[in-house]
Write a protein that binds this DNA or RNA. Structure first.
Lengths: 194, 194
DNA sequence: GAAGTCATGTAAAATGTTACATGATTCA
DNA sequence: TGAATCATGTAACATTTTACATGACTTC
């Protein structure tokens, strides 16, 4: 699913400007999708050209003119079709974080700790964001968004817990390497999870 | 981290051909990284051109000639540098699956079930793959790979559990919509997780 | 005999990221 | 006064995916 399709999908829910769509993606789509203005604006232009959305310019005083997009009948059909014709949607993680941790033995323990901390912070930030949504109007959400939000919560919580509980695997024992060689290797049992 | 860097990293562990690297990525990197031949071969060519790896052609009878790549001193340095200069590595999920589930109300319940089943199967497949690795030589693995493997296990297990436990959120009640309107709406409490 | 594995690559097409460019308003 | 928010876009660049092309050997 490319940015075009995602925009079309969001426009089935409500009319929006490119700016709005970006905000929405940074909101409830945050944990599994992202797109910059550089993809969104051209996507909307293409959708408009294809007749799948209509654009009306809204100008208010003392504000930049906004382009409000509304999905057309054909647009709605097109989106429904893309949904119908995809029975094995992808789910891809691309993680520099895990790639780096894979090579932890080549890294400075201080830096490893910094990276781990950074990851925990980001997970907390995203988890907090989801929690905010739940507070607001959770009960009135349709099943789809609720399922997706819950999924993000469950998976990120698991990631958070794992990192917090197993970080010592990566940073333990190495700190001692800075000492003038005591030749006293502390062997840890490699417990990873229960 | 692009394919080039990943290849360089893998080559710090052992010499390999492009084909080998692909297999390795399909193995322990499977759950957080992927690359096709179309990225790997050009990447290796560029690395060789930059003097970060060396290539020696190995020809055996009755087999295609293989190009075995070995990292150079400068290559090792370069990789260590990339590690050193990245203290906030990314971790991005791009999920068509969640995007589609977000719009579940627009979809046929049968298809939703099919998609959910497909997702569960894929998670199981990847989980099994990780389990195999653990069996083999788990205890002798360095901390890095062990951490990364454990992470994948924890997160994918959480995803699996969540989908299995909450799928009824998406497919329940809708089946009844096919019936000639009994006007008997079964209200479910929107429990998502404990 | 067909499918799958081993093995390498090229080239076009699709996609996305980043940097640039503009400009008013609001808040600290 | 400076930063953040609102608001839109272009263009160059980087990157990845996909399709194509080749060919021998092995296993069912």
């Amino acid at each position: 699913m490319d940015v075009k399709t995602i925009c079309l999908g969001l426009l089935t829910l409500d009319d929006a400007t490119g700016y709005d769509l970006k905000k929405q993606l940074e909101g409830s789509f945050n944990h599994f999708y992202s797109a910059g203005f550089g993809s969104i604006y051209p996507a909307l232009a293409q959708l408009a050209e294809a007749g799948l959305v209509e654009c009306s310019e809204v100008s208010e005083e003392g504000r930049p003119a906004r382009k409000l997009y509304r999905i057309t009948g054909r647009g709605r059909e097109a989106f429904l079709d893309t949904l119908k014709n995809n029975s094995s949607p992808g789910h891809k993680l691309r993680s520099e974080f895990l790639a780096m941790m894979y090579f932890a033995q080549l890294m400075d323990p201080g830096q490893i700790r910094a990276i781990l901390d950074h990851r925990l912070e980001e997970l907390d930030r995203k988890l907090d964001l989801l929690a905010e949504y739940e507070q607001s109007d959770w009960r009135h959400w349709p099943a789809g968004p609720r399922f997706v939000c819950g999924f993000g919560k469950a998976v990120m919580q698991a990631a958070r817990d794992y990192v917090a509980e197993n970080r010592q695997l990566l940073s333990d024992g190495k700190e001692l390497a800075k000492e003038p060689r005591g030749d006293k290797v502390v062997t840890r049992n490699g417990r990873v999870q229960a």
